[in-house]
């Protein structure tokens, strides 16, 4: 039997052809190392964001003001744990384990979304996070359902369906509160004021200052630019804010007939850079919470492994 050696050039050409056809790359396909590294970085960061993202809202499960809201919030935060699981599993198809990725998060070598470094100060924040934060996440994530890496795209389809529920429950909470007392309406407006700019920052730095974007676009990992998605989010959100009866805290926000889009002010990019550097209001708290949960659970994971080994030996 003779085997035909496969030339690296041929592998690369096949990979490029798959990308050009907008087909999926699958785990056993050849892929450039840099493509694999970029995917692991992006998917792991997304998984970490789901897990860290359980904290800001999770802080209000115990204080939810009605049993119905408690059930909705608990189910929502549980979904986020589930999303983390899908994404860690998708990462594992690229040859990196959940334990390794957890270690990278806990030692600060991989990041999570900076939005979760802001505090939640009232129950209205549960609604605002659903509406604006999950809304922004959906804008970012819907194009990822068509991303070039198969397991990532398929995980994103499920995640986007659930995120869409999350956004609606948030908006519905705010809508209900706006029909309540004056104090509740003030709570909603105050919350929207705090989360509007951080939500806009979720799309990342402006295109002129986004170093990894071009290559991710070329590989079909990313499908739209940061600024395109940010504009889409603003255009989608303005009419929702009007229906809700809240003001978005941007004096420069207005409809531009010529562009067919809303003009809006510039987020404070220095603030985003500071939060990414670890100087946000809750960075230390979020990491300490995650680390404590991981360390407190170490003896349980060891016990489960020891038990499984013993059972396997029997």
């Amino acid at each position: 039997m003779t085997t035909t050696p496969v030339e690296p050039e041929a592998l690369e050409a096949a990979f490029e052809a798959t990308i050009a056809r907008h087909d999926r790359i699958e785990p056993r396909d050849w892929m450039p190392d840099a493509y694999r590294r970029t995917l692991v970085r992006q998917m792991a960061q997304h998984a970490h964001s789901e897990i860290i993202g359980m904290q800001p809202e999770g802080a209000w499960i115990g204080r939810a003001p009605s049993l119905r809201r408690k059930a909705i919030l608990l189910a929502k935060v549980q979904d986020e744990a589930g999303h983390g699981l899908y994404l860690y599993s998708a990462c594992e198809t690229l040859g990196v384990s959940r334990a390794e990725l957890t270690d990278l998060l806990l030692t600060g070598r991989q990041k999570y979304s900076s939005i979760f470094n802001y505090p939640t100060l009232s129950y209205a924040d549960v609604g605002t996070i659903g509406w604006l934060v999950d809304g922004a996440a959906i804008c970012n994530q819907v194009p990822l359902c068509r991303t070039s890496y198969g397991p990532y795209g398929r995980a994103m389809i499920r995640i986007c369906k659930e995120e869409s529920f999350h956004q609606r429950q948030g908006y519905e909470l705010l809508m209900t509160m706006m029909r309540g007392t004056d104090a509740q309406r003030e709570m909603v407006q105050e919350s929207v004021n705090r989360f509007w700019w951080p939500a806009l920052m979720m799309f990342g730095p402006p295109d002129t200052d986004s170093p990894n974007s071009a290559r991710s676009m070329a590989w079909g990992i990313k499908r739209n630019s940061n600024d395109e998605l940010r504009q889409k989010f603003v255009d989608m959100t303005v009419p929702q804010a009007e229906a809700l009866g809240v003001t978005l805290p941007d004096p420069d926000l207005r409809w531009n007939e010529e562009r067919g889009h809303h003009d809006f002010g510039e987020p404070d990019w220095d603030e985003l850079a500071a939060v990414i550097r670890g100087e946000g209001p809750c960075n230390a708290q979020r990491m300490a919470h995650r680390r404590a949960a991981h360390e407190d659970g170490a003896w349980v994971r060891e016990a489960a492994s020891a038990f499984a080994e013993r059972a396997g030996a029997r």
């Binding site: 115990g62 935060v77 744990a81 699981l85 919470h289 349980v300």
Partner: peptide
């Protein structure tokens, strides 16, 4: 049980505890 949310030893147990709380 819901106080365990985001504090369990593993994601699977976090989800299980939230399920039972629900």
């Amino acid at each position: 049980l819901s106080e365990w949310c985001s504090r369990a030893p593993d994601l699977e147990e976090d989800i299980a505890l939230a399920n039972m709380a629900l």
